[in-house]
Amino acid sequence: MVRINPSSIKNILIIRKHNQIGDMIVSIPMYYALKKTFPESRITLLASKTNYKIPFSEINPYIDDVIIYDKIKIQNAIKLIKQLRKLKFDLVVIPSTVRFSTTHNLISFLAGIKYRVGVSGVNGSKNKLSFLLNIKAKFNWIENKTHQIFRNLEVIEQIGCKLNFSEIFDSFPKISEKDETEMKKILDESFNEKNILIGIHPGAGKTQNIWDSENFLSLIKNLYQNYQANFIITGGFTDEEIIQKIQIELVNSKIPFLLAQNYEFRKLMSLINQCDLFISNDTGVMHIAGLTNTVLVGLMKKGNVREWAPMWKNKFYVSSPTDNINDLSLEEVQNFCNKVLNLTKWRKKLV
């Protein structure tokens, strides 16, 4: 472990290749640990451009500033490096918890940052240009099946940043009373009957994580038949086609539902918190649901669970037997959801 005088660190740069909503949520404790260890510091995230807007500050209150860069072309790289040198960062962290980026190592070196923290290798795979980092270590994340939360934290443990489990839990955003009241009002106005409430997120940012929409429709109809439930269908900008298909079928089947499309992060979190059960593909919204008190059933591919599944109380998953999410059977998901709903201690609205 390298000891750094906390008062000497005023300006911290984080360079992450993956900054979608799920990636942002699992990395929150890392930012909190840096703020705890270096309380006088400002944290800037250097993030690549995405095809939709990420509400960085809304998700992560420990980020003070964000620099967005497009894919590195030589002219853009030179401009970026000049900008970073001008900002005079004292410390840079390159977590590399998903995959390595030689570009990030090079940028951190050319930006003239004194302390450059990162990863030299993972399970025998070498991080090229890691010699440009001056604080680094090898990790066995794949062999140890280390969750993304702890991968991020292990990188900064090299400089003495540590959290206990309670601090990790407390670092995540909480639901405000204002948002809670607003969502309750929306639900009161949306449903005539106060039956149990089930949330469904049928889309995903990655097409390979999408369980077939016909399965979701059959699941909804089964749950409605068994519990006379009300439903919330959530979706984002990339889920339009799936949402439209499900919406038409639910209207035709006269199943009560609220469409919650493109909700802001905090409002969506509060809305999900009103549900008795939330069922989601492996995507950013699954991680948002993981921050709530609601029972979550995540639908995940084999191999993704230990690394990405939400970890907290009453958070469950059903995984496919293969790398194909659609090898996960409707019957298995239905049976699991029925078991959860029959445990009335987890219900918020008894019927």
Rank of each mutant, 00 (worst) to 15 (best):
A289H: 10
S108R: 05
I279M: 05
T44W: 04
P39E: 04
S320R: 15
N144S: 15
L259G: 03
V26A: 13
K126N: 13
Q261D: 06
L330C: 14
G160S: 04
H104I: 03
G160D: 04
R16W: 04
G205T: 09
N144K: 15
N273L: 02
I9P: 01
G22R: 12
K162Q: 11
L341G: 07
N11L: 03
K254D: 12
I233L: 05
A137Y: 01
E193F: 13
W312N: 04
W211K: 12
I288Y: 06
A33G: 08
N11C: 08
N144R: 15
F89I: 08
I74C: 01
F131M: 04
L133G: 15
K178C: 07
S120M: 11
T238Q: 06
K348A: 05
I198G: 05
I21F: 00
E180M: 07
S96P: 03
M269L: 06
P39R: 07
R85T: 10
F278S: 04
W211P: 09
I25N: 01
K349W: 11
Q83I: 10
G118I: 06
H104T: 00
T44D: 11
N152D: 15
T322P: 13
K86W: 09
L87A: 14
I255L: 09
S48N: 10
I198Q: 02
I12K: 00
K36W: 09
M1V: 11
K35G: 10
R266P: 06
K254L: 08
K86V: 03
P202S: 03
L133I: 09
D276S: 03
T294D: 02
G22E: 13
Y32M: 02
D64N: 14
V122Q: 09
F165R: 14
I59H: 00
Q158C: 14
A309D: 02
N252V: 00
I28D: 00
L299A: 08
S171M: 06
Q158V: 13
F109H: 15
T44R: 08
E177H: 11
E177P: 02
D90S: 09
S130F: 12
M311G: 08
D65Y: 11
C275R: 01
E332L: 00
E180R: 11
N262P: 05
L250K: 07
L350D: 02
L84M: 00
I156L: 03
K49A: 03
A33K: 08
N60S: 00
K136E: 13
Q225W: 13
K35W: 09
F165V: 08
F265N: 05
K82C: 09
K206M: 12
Q228D: 10
I232Y: 01
P256A: 07
S48I: 12
T283D: 06
I156R: 01
K82H: 10
T103C: 10
I142C: 01
T238F: 07
S108T: 05
F316V: 00
T97P: 06
I288F: 06
L80M: 08
H201E: 08
K348E: 02
S130A: 15
T103Q: 14
K185I: 07
